[in-house]
Design a protein around this nucleic acid. Structure first.
Lengths: 132, 132
DNA sequence: ATCATCTAGGTGCAGTATGCATATAGATGA
DNA sequence: TCATCTATATGCATACTGCACCTAGATGAT
């Protein structure tokens, strides 16, 4: 995966909804232990696009999760390449994932409230609608 | 609205999806000019809960929008109380709102991809599901 | 008058999140 | 031996947010 950390395109709004990498990593780790570089590849499954995130972000989130006791890590020799820091989810991390899911469900409700307000408003002021 | 800027509860995840105040403010301003203090009250409509945001955040977002040409402001004497800085949406701001909506629709897709992955995964590993 | 309160806008600081650049280093193959 | 891939990590700059705090006009009660 060469050049993976280049090319993060800025076609989104600056003050945007952040990407929710942390719960995605937790969910991936719920499926079994893994390490940063592999997790970065598996993040594509969530539809972030080609470049889900900078690798530094992934590594930092993993360390932060470990500091809070949600994952634990050990060094492991791989079949090839340099050693890997392999993370596994702790029971606390499992609970944290459930919290995240409830949190995201709430976010989903707020988001759809916004869409509802938007459509409602645009039906009335249908000047300057979305004539893309 | 006394004491309005106190009491921001931290029952959500730390590394959470940020609240999308900027597009909400833009949508409110699409309905007509307004000022910070009033916009803060009207934000409740979006279902953020009792305390949508700290007032300082609102004022700073508005100034940032103005710096980028998405809104313009003027001072206006109100019927009562101190003078208000009244903002109105610019054509560029209208376009920026449309960009935001497309951005949020993309976020919505990613969010639902996450929910789908989550449910899928939990059906298989239905140990440690959500026995709340 | 003056005092508390409401309305309205604002700054300073700290913590956190993120992207980009860069560093380190083992493994692998040309 | 040299480039490339795999893998982890740090430094720096920028941005978002909440909390504390400040300024100041208006309003009503005492």
């Amino acid at each position: 995966m060469p050049g993976r950390r280049r090319g993060a395109v800025h076609n989104r709004c600056g003050r945007r909804i952040n990407r929710f990498l942390e719960p995605c990593l937790l969910l991936l780790l719920h499926g079994g232990e893994s390490y940063g570089y592999q997790l970065l590849e598996n993040l594509e499954r969530f539809g972030f696009g080609e470049d889900p995130a900078d690798s530094s972000t992934i590594y930092r989130i993993l360390r932060s999760l470990e500091n809070r006791g949600f994952v634990s890590s050990r060094w492991a020799e791989g079949d090839s390449g340099p050693a890997r820091r392999v993370y596994s989810l702790s029971p606390a991390g499992d609970g944290y994932l459930q919290t995240w899911v409830r949190d995201l469900e709430e976010t989903d409700r707020i988001l759809h409230r916004f869409f509802s307000e938007y459509r409602n408003h645009m039906e009335l002021h249908h000047s300057s609608g979305r004539e893309t």
